[in-house]
Design a protein around this nucleic acid. Structure first.
Lengths: 337, 337
DNA sequence: CTGAAAGCGCTTACAG
DNA sequence: CTGAAAGCGCTTACAG
């Protein structure tokens, strides 16, 4: 591996000049600049990022906290995977790499903060896995630029990105009402997750606006996973009074609900209309097509990357970004009764 | 951020001694060692990894090449997500972090090699996304310790981890035969992917062993995704002679096939038995339960971590690891005819 | 068991 | 526009 000194010697200039060619090209004479660039290409010179980071205190690396282990399967949700790729792409377009932070069995409260400091990470993105342990709080309070997905957090240089969960849920309920449904139940996400709570809120709000009664027996909590949606739907079907529509707060759960309805000998949408949330790939493919509230998955990654990079560059924490959610109508809720 | 000098000063020793406390503790006097450790904790000293990497040429970071963009949706497959977490966990247990490599629109052949060298990465894991472009070949040939998932590659310090795809496919076909099925079709993965080709091979091998004829019209290529399985199944159903069983080379495709069969007014397993491959979460949940060939998802991550770390520590490239695949019997293939 | 010194490969005021 | 020098925070033979 060639170093900056060798390259400088080859070009008959000082290392300082070579450094300027890469970091501040306009200040160096055009001729020498070209020569340095050409020679660098010939000998395959690559700047050593560790040395740069040591000298500049900037690593151009962002940490990803995706708090996962085998007891917390939050990461299994396909929605996160779709966000991850968008985030990686958006960051790399801005010159940043993504380091997956692992606590390596070091279960102390400051595990993440320590990892971030040791590696000179410039910022952090955290994916809400439903848990919110002290190590995340410490990270948010540490002063490191921090963007959280789907969860508001307190901290000096922290912001978050989320979908308009309340508005999206309202869209879903309004749509079901427009289709002539009046007994509209909901299968919620876990109450302790932000999206879970907000989508329930939207359901309640829209019910109120429409003048429909709020019926506690029409609200069953799920877990965002297929099996939870299946179980929740069975509970709804066991009740004396059956709903004619269900707003399911996540597509995976909605597929589980679909299955449960089929097992009960009922049909979607004839007997029960269904609207999901997320618009994961399977929503379009499962018959009769799942009507759902789409989240802007690429938008998550882009907004998170923008926010963290702007804070890294010295800006104050930008306000939270609430991405619009849009209704995608498919067969599970149409035609009207 | 406290440095090693400050810590040394506080303890009345030299930086060299502090360094030894962290890197080679046994050579330093027990008393001073304890004092250094205690003081380090008090002032929150953390070694600067960039400086360490610069001095030692070891970064304790492994790159992940997951070659993805919006045209190549390889990453969307839920199977990869399950592997990723296992890999991260296994690596972090061995003291390594995972850096997601992005080419940031730098579409040169040596983009990955450059990224690896610039960041002093100790090794690399590559996930086969079906494409195999020159930049991956260059990486494999570069001399950097390299582990590939699901694809054999040539290179001085390279090995790979895969499932026993041939054996697994044979298990599936044999099982269908034991259930009394004789007209056994297959929906394959893309022919240019290794798992796709091998599972087809296993299908052919077992057919031959059982004395069943190989019928080209019973072989339809899919894409490993739900929609591809759906389309492939429709083609099988359009033919004059309908199969009574299908070995589908991936669970997502199998779910698509299940849907297509239902749409055609046929039933699984009564009319057509189905066996998938992978054992992703949905396999257990979709009615009537998908019989499938399970891959050892945690095993992938562990084997890859072991292999790359052993090469980093100077060992020769270990032989390829072929993980056993096991049959998981559910309702889609039972009871026997 | 310990310290002084040199070095890892860069960057960046400072002076010219 | 350019160079010499100092410094980023560590590690590691070497000498004692």
């Amino acid at each position: 591996m060639a170093t900056i000194r060798e390259l400088a010697r080859l070009c008959g200039v000082s290392p300082a000049t070579v450094s300027r060619v890469f970091n501040n090209p306009k200040v160096v004479n055009a001729k020498t600049r070209e020569q340095v660039l050409r020679t660098a290409r010939q000998i395959g010179y690559l700047p050593n990022e560790s040395a740069r980071t040591l000298a500049t205190k900037k690593s151009f690396m962002v940490g990803l906290v995706w708090d996962t282990d085998h007891r917390r399967p939050g990461w299994r949700h396909p929605f996160f995977q779709e966000i991850l790729i968008g985030l990686k792409t958006a960051l790399s377009g801005r010159g940043y790499h993504l380091l997956m932070l692992a606590t390596s069995g070091e279960p102390t409260e400051d595990a993440y903060v320590r990892a971030v400091r040791r590696h000179n990470l410039d910022g952090v993105v955290m994916i809400d896995s439903g848990t919110w342990d002290p190590s995340l709080r410490r990270l948010a309070e540490s002063g490191i630029p921090c963007v959280s997905l789907d969860r508001p957090v307190q901290g000096p240089r922290v912001t978050y990105v989320t979908s308009d969960n309340v508005g999206g849920a309202r869209l879903a309920v309004r749509h079901l009402h427009e289709q002539g449904r009046r007994a509209i139940a909901t299968i919620t996400g876990p109450a302790h997750t932000r999206p879970g709570a907000e989508r329930l809120q939207g359901y309640q709000d829209e019910l109120a606006r429409l003048g429909l009664p709020y019926r506690p027996e029409f609200v069953v909590e799920g877990d965002f996973y297929l099996s939870g949606g299946h179980a929740a739907m069975r509970r709804l079907l066991e009740a004396d009074d059956r709903p004619d529509a269900v707003f399911v707060a996540g597509d995976e759960m909605a597929v589980g609900a679909l299955v449960a309805i089929g097992e009960a000998g009922l049909k979607v949408p004839e007997d029960i209309a269904l609207v999901g949330f997320d618009d994961i790939e399977v929503a379009a493919l499962v018959p009769p097509g799942l009507t759902t509230v789409a989240q802007d998955k690429d938008g998550f990654g882009i907004a998170a990357a923008e926010a963290v990079v702007s804070m890294i560059n010295g800006a104050d924490a930008p306000p939270p970004r609430i991405l619009p959610a849009t209704l995608v109508v498919r067969g599970s809720s149409t035609p009207p009764l």
